[in-house]
Design a binder for these strands. Structure first.
Length: 302
RNA sequence: GGUGCCAUAGCUCAGUUGGUAGAGCAACGGACUGAAAAUCCGUGUGUCCUUGGUUCGACUCCGAGUGGCACCA
């Protein structure tokens, strides 16, 4: 019998956790998280990790498994999660992958190219050059080091330019030479489910969830990691707004409003990404029975 | 009950000496392979309250109505 990975994707706050748990219980299996922030043990309230009771019902992986103090990225996740899936599939015919980090889901389902991790020193140097010399200087260097990528890169997107440059500088090769646009074959079938509900309802859920986070002590949680605010892992909705408040730049009320707004925008961005994926099957978060029936039908056809 | 002021985008408000309108915020669409809850790009979405009148033409001027606010009773 072939192995099947059931992916539960969708915008933040739509209700992925609950659906994933019901599916995992139905298929008597475990859940692998594909959430790039729930992975950090220092973050609990602001990342809306599953509740204690939920975690007790079904075994979860990649929740609180890493630290914000160690750099993490989609490639590491690809390697670690695939390794884990290999083990889980020895035990189960289906495994549930649940989470909203678009690139992490793609890393599992399609794979991303192999290239070295960015050297923190080189990145820091490029960033400071961006400050002092401006983006044009970085563009000019990229044009010289990798003219092919220069043609296609978004020249206004500093993150992309910096990343391409750091790979060029570290390896002495072009960034393009690492880009093969892989569609890696996986030793399991993939069924992708994405959850969505009407926009007003989604916004309402997000707003209410943020209010609950604040009530549950999000401010204190943010205060605890405030000393490390420069870490990439903390450049995150629900934390950086508090840091701005702690720095005296905005009021507490503004911080909370901004967390809501930025969460809404993040949800929209996720929807844009998932919409583009033609392999996605859309459901309402209430349609658990339908999802189970759909998945079973898909499995039986394979 | 009387008088005055107001009514324009989802919200707060500009504006048009009469030629069907624009800011901020919110919202919406898109890009994306080691920062991805990141990073970047794009888009006004409108019965200018309703209804008569004047006018070649009314969102703008005039009358009436409706709703809101203020003051006087």
């Amino acid at each position: 019998m072939s192995k099947t990975l059931i992916v539960i994707a969708g915008p933040t706050g739509v209700g992925k956790t609950s659906v994933a748990i019901k599916l995992a219980k139905h298929f008597k299996t475990e859940i692998v998280s594909s959430d790039s922030r729930q992975i950090f043990k220092e973050l609990t309230i602001g990342t809306a990790i599953p509740a204690k009771e939920e975690l007790e019902q079904v075994k979860h992986h990649f929740i609180h498994s890493h630290s914000i103090h160690n750099n993490y990225n989609a490639s590491r996740y690809e390697n670690e999660a695939l390794e884990l899936l290999e083990i889980l599939f020895q035990k189960y015919n289906t495994v549930v992958l649940a989470g909203g980090s678009m690139l992490y889901i793609d890393a599992i389902c399609k794979g991303i190219d192999t290239m070295p991790d960015a050297d923190p020193e080189i990145r820091a140097e490029l960033k400071s050059r961006l400050e002092t010399e401006g983006i044009e200087s970085l563009r000019t260097q990229l044009k010289k080091l990798d003219p092919e990528y220069y043609q296609i890169v978004d020249l206004k997107n500093q993150a992309r330019i910096i990343h391409a440059l750091e790979i060029c500088l570290m390896t002495g090769k072009t960034f393009t030479s690492f880009r093969s646009n892989p569609n890696k074959k996986r030793p399991f079938e993939i069924i992708k489910i994405a959850l969505n509900t009407d926009r007003a309802e989604l916004h309402d859920r997000i707003n209410r969830r943020v209010d609950k986070m604040v009530k549950d002590g999000l401010e204190k949680e943010a205060r605890n990691v405030y000393p490390y605010k420069y870490l990439t892992a903390l450049n995150t909705v629900g934390y950086r707004e508090w840091f701005n408040y702690f720095d005296g730049e905005i009021s507490r009320e503004e911080a909370i409003e901004l967390i809501k707004r930025n969460s809404r925008r993040y949800a929209r961005k996720q929807l844009t990404w998932f919409r583009k994926d033609e392999t996605v099957n859309w459901f309402d978060p209430d349609q658990v029975e339908e999802i189970i029936a759909f998945v079973e039908h898909q499995i039986s056809e394979k």
